[in-house]
């Protein structure tokens, strides 16, 4: 009896694992920094002041200045807003059609399944970053190209996951029993499929956001992503690398930010998946 009663607790604890809680807390702190800073500190991410070039942190400017004398605090919070916003938008844009198409393909089977799977395979034929790069070449506006390209890469993971889970479930006795009892497709999605997918959607979403953030930073770092003077984490690293000896604190800020951001998302995603 005692063992039976403890079961629900164990189930909940495994979802809210210690590392996931740490990850959520870390992400919450980063989000708070990114979105609260503009209300607390009055500074522009693009305003230059030559006498402050590479200035060290002070009480009024706790993160110091960059090579053009711009406020690092304002730039860091703006860069984080851009990365978080783009990543969040891409994940949502990828998740909704990815899940819907996955359920559709698994449920309908036959040609519907084959057609959607073919499209997914086509996108998988090329490593995601190459696809995003091609989009950047086509679309002039970099943030928009990043958003579309990343979403186009991310939806596949949702599709494949949902499809494989749904395929097993559709044939299961549980779904057969529900159909015999008179329940329709909506009920089966709500009670059978969604509860199985939901925890994994969080994992895939966190990983997707992490790879989106890494891709945005990487492409901007090699000067084909976001263009100056927009503050972006990867771009800031490129700009500040030549001044590493004069102002190591400036270069390390975007480095630490990218690391913490991806770490928090990996922690949320969980260790049992890669």
């Amino acid at each position: 009896m005692a063992a039976d009663l403890s079961l629900p607790l164990v189930a909940e604890r495994s979802f809210w694992s210690t590392q996931r809680i740490i990850g959520v807390a870390l992400l919450a702190a980063i989000v708070a920094f990114a979105f609260v800073t503009p209300f607390v500190f009055d500074g522009s991410p693009t305003r230059q002041s030559l006498r402050n070039v590479l200035g060290a942190p002070t009480v009024l400017e706790p993160l110091g200045y960059d090579h053009l004398g711009r406020s690092m605090l304002a730039r860091m919070s703006a860069a984080l807003r851009l990365s978080l916003g783009l990543a969040f938008l891409s994940v949502i844009t990828a998740a909704v059609p990815g899940i819907a198409l996955g359920i559709l393909a698994a449920w309908k089977g036959g040609w519907t399944d084959r057609l959607i799977s073919l499209v997914a395979d086509a996108f998988l034929a090329l490593p995601g970053l190459l696809l995003v790069l091609m989009f950047i070449a086509i679309v002039q506006d970099a943030p928009w190209a990043l958003y579309v390209g990343i979403s186009l890469v991310l939806w596949i993971e949702y599709f494949r996951l949902t499809r494989s889970i749904t395929r097993a479930l559709v044939l299961s006795p549980a779904v057969q029993a529900s159909q015999l009892l008179g329940f329709g497709p909506l009920y089966i999605v709500r009670r059978h499929i969604w509860p199985e997918i939901a925890p994994l959607v969080l994992t895939v979403g966190a990983f997707g956001a992490a790879s989106a953030i890494a891709a945005i930073a990487a492409l901007s770092f090699v000067s084909v992503g976001v263009r100056p003077p927009t503050p972006e984490l990867g771009l800031m690293m490129t700009e500040l690398l030549p001044y590493y000896h004069e102002a190591p604190h400036a270069l390390l800020q975007p480095v630490v930010a990218v690391f913490l951001l991806i770490l928090s998302l990996n922690l949320i995603a969980g260790s049992n998946s890669r």
């Binding site: 299961s172 006795p173 549980a174 029993a177 529900s178 009670r191 059978h192 509860p195 199985e196």
Partner: peptide, 10 residues
């Protein structure tokens, strides 16, 4: 298999 005949998480 009785457990396989119910929605697992409900």
């Amino acid at each position: 298999d009785p457990p396989a005949a119910f929605p697992q998480k409900v």
